[in-house]
């Protein structure tokens, strides 16, 4: 098994990057091993836990199930590239205040899913928040304070 590397061009957090990555690598592998983008976490590598969730062309996807080759020419966005995003900043602040961050391993994925929800539905019900976050497993919080944070952020943003 020789490691064959392939060169891909994509937009990462607003910047054009060229990256040499193992042929057939997942986006999660490329981000972490080749680009040292570490906010996307490997919690399961099976698409279940949501800790690796990133945006491709603005849509949340599992980095662990996405091939880097498929991202050729597309825009990938991770938590590292969220500076200046008002919705994300508000969500982050509410998460800090509500206690929705415990070990933090799920947090990046949770926030990316939550931001996607608020873009689609700025005033979600608590049920809608729980549904939108149901693909992000959190083993620490019991979800209550996370839902509080997302609802709090939604309320603040919609004022």
């Amino acid at each position: 098994m020789m490691v064959k590397k392939v060169l891909h061009s994509l937009t990462l957090n607003g910047e054009e990057v060229q990256v040499a990555t193992a042929a057939g690598a997942t986006l999660l592998q490329t981000l972490r091993e080749d680009l040292r983008i570490l906010s996307s976490k490997r919690g399961c590598n099976q698409g279940v836990c949501g800790a690796c969730t990133v945006l491709v062309d603005g849509t949340p996807v599992r980095a662990c199930l996405t091939l880097t080759a498929r991202c050729e020419g597309h825009a990938v966005q991770t938590m590292e590239g969220m500076d200046g995003d008002r919705v994300m900043a508000t969500l982050q602040r509410h998460m800090v205040q509500s206690g929705g961050v415990q070990c933090g391993f799920c947090t990046g994925g949770v926030l990316i899913s939550a931001r996607d929800l608020l873009e689609a539905d700025p005033t979600p019900s608590r049920e809608a928040v729980k549904t939108a976050l149901s693909g992000n497993i959190c083993r620490c919080t019991g979800y209550r304070t996370i839902v509080d944070a997302v609802c709090g952020a939604a309320e603040e943003l919609s004022q």
Partner: peptide
Amino acid sequence: QSVAKTDSLEKVQGRAEYIAD
């Protein structure tokens, strides 16, 4: 007082370093 955890900020920004990082 319910002060926010000292590690919350780095965690919401995805900067906290775990063993794999």
